[in-house]
Design a binder for these strands. Structure first.
Lengths: 150, 150
DNA sequence: ATGACTGCAAACCATTTGCATTGAT
DNA sequence: ATCAATGCAAATGGTTTGCAGTCAT
């Protein structure tokens, strides 16, 4: 339960920029939540995040975690995902144009990220064939990981 | 608001089979909801379905629609989808091994189904590369349809 | 008759919000 | 000082459930 690592400067400056340009403030809770979030491997629910945050400061409220995650989402630093278990999960946003998708083990809950450009371009083609311009997409493969097949 | 069409026999017999083998009963409400559901084009929310059902029988409760959709889902006749607007949508299950995915227009809400075997097999390959066996997947492309790009 | 089904209202659960108070600038 | 942020509890909204009465077999 040591102090969470300082934020990478790229993230920190982008966040600071967002706060300043929107007349928002930097607070103890916001900083802590953001640090804990980026230190984690991602795919955390608010509940999980709150638990980790409270290990550092037991007085942070759930509402503040929700509000901070919305802020990170709005600022483009975090992405919200829904894997079908009823609660949102958050992960650091992809930098640049690298989009990734997910493999989810229905046995143990493990989540693996992957990138496949071939699939991406096929998606573009399919969409174009229907007259669509794609702005976003999501692809999730559910199954059993190596360990859970045994 | 005419009487909904009778169910295709394939669906009807599969449903009857499920009911019988599970000690469940056929009721006026169940039959009506099922008929209205299969007559519709799919992608209906419970709210939309209830509205249509009530056009035939105003006394059907929302709870019964929820329970019936769970039954259809459990029996494999319907599939539940979540397109990110907070409510579940249902569509007739794919027959056989034909799996389809969705293109969703963020402008007008139009939903287009498509099938692309090439993507499907690439998905299998990606999963295999990570030691996974895929049991299910979902792919949704969000964007603007031809009409909404104007 | 028996036990499943229905309608209603209350309960649930993740998430959001109103409000009085606290805190950052 | 000013105005945003916080914590708390109450509210929301989709979905589920307990229960007493109803219906299918």
């Amino acid at each position: 339960m040591k102090t969470p690592a300082a934020l990478p400067t790229a993230i920190e400056s982008r966040l600071r920029d967002y706060l300043v340009t929107h007349g928002l403030k930097s607070t103890r809770q916001r900083d802590l939540i953001t640090q804990v979030f980026f230190e984690a491997s991602g795919h955390l629910s608010v509940e999980q995040l709150l638990e980790r945050v409270r290990a550092h400061d037991g007085r942070v409220s759930q509402a503040t975690v929700y509000r901070t995650m919305r802020l990170l989402k709005d600022s483009g630093l975090a992405e919200e995902r829904h894997f079908g278990d009823g609660q949102a999960r958050y992960e650091p946003a992809d930098s640049g144009d690298e989009h990734h998708d997910h493999l989810i083990c229905t046995g143990c809950g493990r989540i693996v990220e992957f990138v496949n450009d071939q699939i991406e371009s096929l998606q573009e083609r399919v969409a174009a064939a229907h007259g669509f311009v794609v702005t976003d997409h999501r692809m999730e493969l559910y199954g059993l990981c190596g360990g859970c097949q045994a």
